[in-house]
Amino acid sequence: MSTAGELAQDVQAAIDKLTEVPPEHIGALIDEYQGVLNAVFNGSNSKLTAAAIRDVALAKSKVEEAYKFVVLTAAKYGEIQENIGVSTGPSVSASSGSKGGSSPAAAAGTRTAKPAARKHPPATFGWTTDFNYRRTFFTANPETKGQVWVHHAVERQVITNYPGVVAPQEMHSLENLRGIPSGEVNRKVHLSALRRAWNAFYLANPNPTKQQLLDEATRLDDLYGNQFNPAIREPEKDEQ
């Protein structure tokens, strides 16, 4: 379990990633930027702009993830604060998403331990009203068009198997999409491993929660994410 100091540092680091833009407006703001970039890309078709589009999409994902992290970690921080008897210091507001007064890290007063860096982000959902998921993926990753199979990290049929657990707007969001190289790798990874794993999950889980579905997606990302395009896990090192 993390110490209060570690959690406080994590909270502070996450807050530092946020801008003064209210968190509920961050996604829309970046969508707006992405729309402009898309328009430029369609006109110029430059590789540089394509890379910018991808970076903006990634930035959106990371900022939204950071915001969720603040909300979740703030709750843990509050519990630990009570347990260790720290009674002062600001609360981290889920609705403000910005700094207020002294930092929770300072309030905790135990900053000796370096927080354990999360090596890889867990699977998460975003939100989209565009259910053309391949368009969503290729807009964010235009250089992969024609080279990858677009796969849902949490499979689409979850909507059929477990009605009401995952909204279609979450299911088809960029955060839930993975690019699997077409051809032999696609068949091996996409079918033999991912599909089989999900089938076993469905057999064993009558009523999974959304988090359990995401946990399974994270587990599969950990196993196969280095083969995706873009890779979402570090490539395996050549042992030879």
Binding site: E155, R156, Q157, L191, S192, R195, R196, W198
Partner: peptide
Amino acid sequence: EPEVPGQW
């Protein structure tokens, strides 16, 4: 445990 070649 057969192969799983598609979705609903």
